[in-house]
Design a protein around this nucleic acid. Structure first.
Lengths: 151, 151
DNA sequence: CCCGCAAATGCAACAAGGTTGCGTTTACAG
DNA sequence: CTGTAAACGCAACCTTGTTGCATTTGCGGG
């Protein structure tokens, strides 16, 4: 799980970027790398913090926004908005592991829990509609919050 | 559809607010009224525009934020975030008609379609979890967008 | 009907998240 | 090696949302 920082991984990101048909720059490689090694979608602020880690020249705020936009535009990253209204970015493909899961969202603490159950088969769609993904989301109160409330 | 601006409707909002146990003010009544007569959740900016319509003193920006927060806090309004990361508010109850529907969201045009089908029974939850609402969301391309893409 | 107090309002200032314009640097094709 | 379009850095700006504080107002009780 905790993979060594082999230079090989950098090449993977670089190759992906090259294959996407855009210029390979250090910034893009670093950002895509960070997205790949993240276990959750990251906000702009979180990415900025992570990239400031090494002695690197700490990339510009605007540049990071533009890099993220370009990665989204060429299909290497995905952009979504969280419950606070902040954009979060993830490496394309990373979210596939959560597709077709059943999720439980706690309306109290905002937590998301993956249930083991398989999603039910989708109903028949009107003519011309093409299905891509199903999300079976249950909303309510999780065990922890139920307990605190009941007390 | 276009209902007359009977003063009766104002009283309905006022009564709801009073029943919720908070002070009845002109601002709250106007806002709740606007939310009730809206067909979709409204953003702060949209509400501000609608309320500026009559010769009313055009309520303060911050006051509108606080009125919305208070309506949410006492359960008369709901707050959600849209794809742009902006908060949208709706009168409580207005969305109930969409709860427990099956929805199809077009990832192309962003449109939401209500399907007639009933949502499948929810799976067994871990101990302590309390279910409140189920959302069976299908994502893909709607008929119109499929057609345009195929062309 | 008036009084008092907590709640609500208005105003100003601030903070975070995101965008635009422009001059400079850099990847990379020829 | 060189030219050029793309990417970058910087400064300024916009929108959305929040905080502090002084003033006004709803409304319960005298």
């Amino acid at each position: 799980m905790a993979r060594a920082l082999a230079p090989a991984q950098i090449d993977v990101s670089a190759d992906l970027i090259r294959a996407a048909g855009v210029k390979v720059t250090r910034g893009r490689v670093r950002v895509l790398d960070a997205l790949h090694s993240a276990r959750q979608p990251l906000s702009h602020a979180e990415l900025e913090a992570r990239l400031g880690d090494p002695a690197e020249p700490a990339m510009d705020r605007v540049t990071l926004y533009r890099i993220l936009d370009s990665l989204v535009a060429c299909g290497l990253a995905l952009k979504a908005v969280d419950t606070r209204g902040v954009f979060r970015f993830s490496a394309a493909g990373a979210q596939r592991q959560h597709a077709n899961h059943v999720h439980f969202r706690c309306t109290d603490c905002g937590g998301v829990f993956c249930l083991k159950a398989e999603p039910p088969p989708p109903p028949r769609l009107p003519r011309g509609f093409r299905l891509n993904e199903v999300a079976f989301d249950l909303r309510g109160t999780c065990a922890g919050c139920s307990l605190r409330e009941g007390a």
